[in-house]
């Protein structure tokens, strides 16, 4: 009788664990379907964006600085390749990215530096990521990141770099929160392995508006 009860208990444990595994697999599969649906929905919506102008507030909490640094500026995007990153505060800095070149200017040096992306693969890898985050091509990012759906409404996604990826050296995770209308990103939070964090809040976003061609020209200011 004792033996029978023992067998019964063992069987029960086995059945429970099978059921738990099945449930887990089931949840994972559901999550995967849910994530795919969300990503496809987001990409669909963001693919309609041809141009974009948005203000941003970037907060950097880095060990290298005593205090949090807050940067303010504007981002312009013209698909498929153009991206301008203009910082107004606390320093003046601009970076314009075309298909193969990056032009940078800063107030202190008042010099324009041009970098060929094809000749600088490391720089290209870094900047390429930035382009992908901003333009919403998340399926591309899935090659290097595992994605977790944190919230469906409003959408919040957590990207964790795959161990062999380039980003895994520095980034712990990237959390992307979308606007309620899912037209564009609301906030990006980057957590680094070192403990440093960078958040990027997008404000005053305008989609598909004409962009002044002067935005794409980087030139030294004549003082």
């Amino acid at each position: 009788m004792i033996k029978l009860s023992q067998i019964f208990i063992v069987l029960l444990i086995i059945l429970m664990s099978i059921s738990a595994i099945a449930q887990e697999t089931d949840t994972e599969a559901k999550n995967k379907i849910g994530l795919d649906k969300v990503l496809s929905r987001l990409e669909n919506k963001m693919s309609g964006i041809k141009t974009l102008k948005t203000g941003f507030v970037q907060e950097k909490e880095l060990a290298v600085f005593n205090n949090k640094i807050v940067l303010k500026g504007t981002v312009y995007i013209e698909k498929p390749y153009r991206l301008a990153w203009l910082v107004n505060k606390p320093l003046k800095y601009s970076m314009v990215m075309s298909e193969d070149t990056i032009s940078q200017w800063d107030e202190d040096t008042n010099k324009v530096q041009k970098i060929s992306l094809s000749k600088n693969p490391a720089f290209e890898a870094v900047i390429g990521q930035m382009r992908e985050w901003f333009s919403g091509t998340y399926t591309q990012l899935m090659k290097e990141y595992n994605v977790i759906l944190l919230s469906d409404k409003p959408v919040s996604l957590k990207f964790v770099p795959k161990p062999a990826s380039f980003a895994a050296n520095v980034i712990k995770s990237v959390t992307v929160d979308f606007r309620k209308d899912e037209q564009y990103i609301n906030k990006i939070l980057i957590e680094e392995k070192s403990g440093d964090t960078t958040s990027l809040l997008f404000v005053d976003t305008h989609l598909n508006i004409p962009i002044d061609p002067a935005v794409w020209r980087v030139a030294p200011i004549v003082r």
């Binding site: 600085f65 970076m95 940078q104 720089f123 930035m130 680094e192």
Partner: peptide, 8 residues
């Protein structure tokens, strides 16, 4: 450090 590639 404050540039877009500063993280890396």
């Amino acid at each position: 450090i404050l540039s877009p590639s500063g993280m890396f």
